[in-house]
Design a protein around this nucleic acid. Structure first.
Lengths: 277, 277
DNA sequence: CCTTATGGTTCATTATTATCACCGTTAGTT
DNA sequence: AACTAACGGTGATAATAATGAACCATAAGG
């Protein structure tokens, strides 16, 4: 297509650049699939095998990816451990979250998880499963899309308009039959969430999973991520809802304190309204 | 410079590709400098400001990097936390190391650290400082070069010849006045290390720091990384040396067991020889 | 108020990358 | 064992995307 002179520069970063394609490869690795072969990666990313191979070589050189000794599979390399260490010692947020997740899971008896804004999506950085027999078992390390998850929606609801616009303009995959992909409907939901302070997602990201999420904030009052509790959909009752939300609000406050986050006025107002019920 | 038709393909990955340049930016973030500005990154990497900016944008989109809200500085993003989580839950090595580091530090009274092969260098994935007043305080999260550190040398010593060749053919920076950069001398040292099973580095990577390192291995018998103890150079005595090496060998064996590593015959022989002294 | 630093942007040039067809191996099937 | 199909990996060329000098706008500092 060439480069049509004055094309919008933001659009380019969506996919066109080579680094974007290379980094996108990393997103295919998850807890459920920690090792992937060359052809498989090429197929999923839609990029040519030769190209993928060249990019993997470079990433191997930098330790982001490594080749499992004998097998011909690629996996995430030791470099990511180092990077995480550097970030965590400089800005220890992950550890702060972990503590609250344990409490949430214990108090609600359900699976709790936390995620942080990572570029255009949410990165799950911690999970604490309940010890009940029937529970939601999340694929941890997953990337959460903004439009289909409770965490994503609640983050968007308190984000600046330009972030919201960018998110809603992206192609939205219908993860289940209930996923909302209509922009107008989503905007209405965001408005609603801004008033309640929490978001729920009734099987919009995964069948049989009901999610409830509450945002946590940065120093500047913008959302940093979210904490959430996921239950089997059939088990959710009004009572449990109320209990979970209360627990989430409580832990969110602790986390905000721990990471030096400043909840904006509208969120604090929403929490206050909830407490009065 | 163009691309001279049939140029060696391996050489390309050294720097020429764009992804390599982008990923190289990540290496500038460390514990001592967790946030860096655009111009600074451009200066250090030797890449044009505009290019660096474009690459940073892409990496922000993928959550590998993020812009500190108000300040105009970049830092490692939440995406690296997710990646590390994925790798660690699938292949839990970091946690295995951490335990041994605590023991090492306690038993020797000095600072212990562990590193894993990450591409062409070693990535420090764990540090445990001693609680003595005078101790070596490492810049954790640092990238260790193969030629100037005890850990790097001991890893090279038990690596396959092609790995060694590649490492020795790279430009070797003299980190201190004592750093060995001569290829022939280094090869002799590697031969020596293969016989003793450990490597020492007397102020070859940092002034006043004396390092002792021992390798840990992968399932296939190739080195996975190294554990090391660093002391103030003046404090190192023959007695301490012997004690530290014994402790290192002992912990290395535990770690190998923990990560399913198989030490090759020559390493086991070296350990046996040491035990007889 | 002028200087000098910063982060950020643009656009024509050109060097880089994607593509396709191709190898050599491995693994599964008949 | 022969055969097939998939795999990881490679190389040359057409077509693309990266590059970097010059350009703003802003902020800090003298």
């Amino acid at each position: 297509m060439g480069r049509v002179a004055g094309i919008k520069p933001e659009i380019r970063s969506i996919m066109s650049t080579t680094v974007a394609k290379a980094l996108a490869l990393l997103d295919f690795f998850s807890d459920s699939e920690p090792e992937i072969g060359l052809s498989e990666l090429a197929r999923r990313s839609g990029v040519d095998k030769a190209t993928v191979h060249r990019m993997l070589l470079v990433m191997c050189d930098h330790g982001l990816v490594e080749k499992r000794g004998a097998a011909r599979l690629y996996r995430l390399g030791a470099g990511v451990l180092r990077l995480a260490r550097v970030r965590e010692t400089a800005f220890p947020v992950s550890s702060v979250f972990q503590h609250s997740l344990a409490i949430l899971s214990a108090n609600t008896g359900e699976t709790a998880h936390a995620s942080l804004i990572a570029g255009r999506a949410l990165a799950t950085i911690g999970v604490c499963e309940s010890n009940r027999g029937s529970r939601v078992s999340l694929v941890a390390g997953e990337i959460l899309r903004m439009h289909s998850t409770a965490s994503g929606l609640v983050v968007l609801a308190f984000s600046k308009p330009d972030i919201v616009d960018r998110a809603l303009n992206e192609p939205m995959v219908a993860k289940t039959s209930r996923t909302i992909t209509n922009t107008a409907v989503l905007r209405a939901r965001l408005q609603e969430i801004r008033l309640t302070g929490f978001a729920d997602a009734d099987q919009t990201n995964e069948d049989d999973v009901y999610g409830l999420a509450v945002p946590v904030f940065d120093v500047d009052g913008t959302p940093a991520g979210a904490i959430a509790v996921a239950t089997p959909a059939h088990r959710m009752t009004n009572d449990l809802r109320h209990q979970v939300i209360a627990a989430l609000f409580q832990e969110a406050e602790k986390i905000n304190f721990g990471i030096g986050g400043n909840p904006p006025a509208d969120f604090r107002a929403a929490v206050a309204r909830f407490s009065q019920t």
